[in-house]
């Protein structure tokens, strides 16, 4: 109770003085902590590609990074309500999102990938998803991608908060769709009987969303500048190599 009250008072005073402190305030970054290998936790330590890139950006910008983890379905709400400044969770640039937010330059180029249980001979690519049940993460844009397919009405889409790769391995759904990079990462490193089915079917670019306000635009410009430096000096590429064995930060 008491700490709650103090927290609230603290928050009020912070809020009141917010405009003055804008420069020195840490960049508040939201992520799910549940998207291997981009953001996940091991022994209470937040890790992953997103964390490494964000830490490098922070260093370049001379800002502290404050990580806020929440279920993916809560992240945009936190951004919308001003509790975080941006989301580092492989956020794909879409027309819909562009209506509400402005985006930094892309820092990951990827494609949508169908993944099935090992030995599945029926589903060998996106064209085989007709009449099948397909899992996607709740709030991710793979659902929208699937719905753009001409035979979308014959696909049963199941949305997951987490654990969709397990349900696919258990045969509860016929396939899941995820970005190619993390899908191959899962198959390579984790003891689940899964395999990639066919080539990617839609290129996607991922970036950081910001509020379309003066402060948001300033932050985006700051991040873009730092991204360019990291791209030029090879930092982005080496972080990508470390996690994926390939450079996903180039088109």
């Amino acid at each position: 109770m008491k700490t709650l009250l103090i927290n609230t008072l603290l928050a009020i005073s912070l809020f009141a003085s917010a405009p003055l402190l804008a420069q020195d305030k840490p960049l508040r970054v939201g992520m799910s902590g549940q998207y291997f290998p981009f953001t996940f936790v091991e022994q209470d330590e937040l890790k992953g590609f997103e964390v490494d890139v964000m830490n490098a950006l922070g260093k370049e910008m001379g800002r502290d990074i404050q990580y806020e983890t929440a279920n993916f379905s809560g992240l945009f709400g936190m951004l919308q309500s001003g509790r975080i400044d941006t989301v580092a969770n492989q956020i794909t640039i879409t027309d819909e999102r562009k209506k509400a937010y402005i985006f930094s330059d892309p820092y990951v180029y990827d494609g949508a990938q169908v993944v099935t249980k090992e030995g599945n001979t029926e589903v060998r690519g996106v064209e085989d998803l007709k009449g099948k049940t397909v899992a996607v993460n709740l709030g991710s844009n793979f659902e929208a991608l699937l719905e753009e397919l001409p035979y979308a009405d014959q696909i049963t889409i199941k949305t997951y908060e987490s654990n969709l790769e397990r349900d696919t391995a258990l045969g509860r759904v016929d396939a899941f769709v995820m970005d190619r990079v993390s899908a191959s990462q899962i198959i390579k490193e984790k003891p689940l009987p899964l395999e990639l089915a066919g080539p990617t079917f839609s290129q996607i670019t991922n970036a950081y969303p910001f509020h379309d306000t003066e402060a948001g635009r300033a932050l985006r410009d700051e991040v873009n500048k730092a991204l360019e430096t990291l791209r030029d000096n090879g930092t982005l590429a080496s972080i990508s190599e470390k996690w994926f064995g390939t450079d996903i930060t180039q088109p």
């Binding site: 549940q34 291997f36 996940f40 936790v41 091991e42 929440a70 379905s73 809560g74 509790r83």
Partner: peptide, 23 residues
């Protein structure tokens, strides 16, 4: 609460499980 960004027991578990795949 984890949906609101509060890492309590369940949120911590979900994140650890995502890191290890030992659900």
């Amino acid at each position: 609460a984890f949906t609101l960004g509060v890492t309590e027991l369940m949120g911590a578990t979900q994140k650890e499980a995502a890191g290890s795949f030992l659900y």
